[in-house]
């Protein structure tokens, strides 16, 4: 084995190296989950408790106190899908910044760390979908229908989007740690701009420009597709196209940014 380059130069070489290291990704994600379970008193119960509390907090505020959204199935589907993506911003940065010692000492494709984080958070998202049905079946009289197979497409596509987000924030947060301070506020703005705590009819009266702006949010088509899958809302072809386009664009851009920067990363850790 002769090596003069730091990391494989070409994208497909890099990807095949990642694939070769899939055992490591799996072990890293499982290790983090195990460590988290072992270090908390309630352990596995948190997998249910976390999404439950997240949902209850938003229902309490936006369903009961300022009732902008009384439809709990609409609210929760939005919250859980949104949370899955929004947590990737902080999680991606943390996966690199929190493993400085490892990165400084051992050579491996660095994208493994954000991907392992994503694998971990995917388990969390799946748990939240179970919690979702446990709430909406009795309280909102919703049954999962045949459209649920749409999840088989929506979930992998959103995962690509999330990897892109995680990789991009990781790349930016290494030289500019300031970004990690900014992320919570960014997430809050993003939440308010997404069709979660307000009904879709709210923007019907808005000007065409404002409507277009709202629809430019990648969460807009994403949540729409998920609501078709989870709640049987009519599926718009435009939403599917927009979601897939957004996810691949963000995914590829984020990963490319990350890989390009990888060789210089250790200097800033």
């Amino acid at each position: 084995m002769t090596t003069t380059t730091y990391y494989a130069r070409r994208f497909n070489e890099y990807m095949s190296e990642l694939w070769r290291r899939r055992d490591f990704v799996w072990f890293l994600a499982r290790g983090n989950i195990k460590a988290r379970n072992a270090s908390t008193f309630l352990g596995l119960v948190w997998w249910v408790l976390n999404p439950l509390m997240l949902g209850l907090v938003y229902f309490f505020i936006f369903g009961l106190i300022f009732p902008t959204q009384r439809d709990i199935s609409y609210l929760l589907s939005g919250i859980f899908v949104f949370h899955f993506s929004s947590q990737s911003l902080a999680g991606g940065a943390k996966s690199i910044l929190g493993n400085a010692k490892l990165l400084v000492n051992i050579r491996f494709p660095r994208l493994i760390l954000p991907i392992a984080f994503l694998l971990e958070s995917t388990f969390g998202f799946l748990a939240s979908l179970i919690v979702f049905y446990l709430i909406v079946i009795p309280f909102a009289d919703v049954r999962p229908g045949p459209q649920i197979v749409l999840l088989l497409v929506a979930l992998p596509v959103q995962v690509i989007f999330n990897i892109g987000l995680a990789a991009a924030t990781a790349r930016l947060a290494v030289p500019f740690r300031d970004i990690t301070n900014f992320i919570p506020y960014l997430n809050r703005i993003w939440l308010y701009c997404s069709p979660i705590i307000w009904p879709l009819t709210m923007i019907d009266n808005a000007s065409p420009t404002a409507q277009t702006l709202f629809r430019l949010n990648p969460m807009f088509p994403m949540i729409a597709v998920y609501r078709s899958a989870l709640l049987g809302y009519p599926l718009e072809r435009a939403d599917v196209v927009a979601m897939v386009a957004w996810c691949f664009a963000v995914g590829i851009l984020g990963i490319a940014m990350f890989i390009k920067y990888e060789g210089r990363m250790v200097r800033y850790l």
Partner: peptide
């Protein structure tokens, strides 16, 4: 050592 380990370019 980090340069030889190729973690630092």
């Amino acid at each position: 050592l980090r340069v030889i380990a190729r973690t630092l370019r």
